[in-house]
């Protein structure tokens, strides 16, 4: 059974096929639904390219849901935070984490 997750991006173009570090929320029903993880994962907009991947829904900065989900294969779960000071842009911090 595939699991489902959601992630938020400023713009869809910020996300690309391949390896990404991103926050995802677990959509498994129950009292822990929406629990957040920071993961390094393989992403693909085409589920056929990641046959053993889970479903990743994507929402924009204003919460708009993109109609087509992507596929995600979690490679590694990281501690659920990025380095940075309060009010700093988390996405910039994640980009530094990747490089």
């Amino acid at each position: 059974m595939k699991k489902e997750y959601v992630t938020f991006v400023r713009r869809l173009s910020d996300l690309g096929d391949g390896k990404e570090t991103l926050f995802i929320k677990d959509l498994t029903p129950g009292p822990r639904k929406y629990d957040t993880k920071l993961v390094r994962a393989e992403l693909s907009r085409n589920s056929g390219n990641l046959p053993d991947g889970d479903t990743l829904w994507i929402r924009s900065e204003t919460g708009h849901l993109h109609p087509q989900p992507w596929s995600i294969k979690i490679l590694e779960e990281l501690p659920p935070y990025a380095p940075g000071q309060p009010w700093q842009d988390v996405f910039s911090s994640l980009r530094h984490l990747k490089s």
Binding site: F8, F23, T36, L38, E61, T62, G63, P80, Y81, A82, P83, G84, Q85, P86, Q88, V90, S93
Partner: peptide, 9 residues
């Protein structure tokens, strides 16, 4: 003071 994470919208 040195860690941040996803919040909102």
């Amino acid at each position: 003071p040195d860690k941040i994470a996803h919040e909102g919208p």
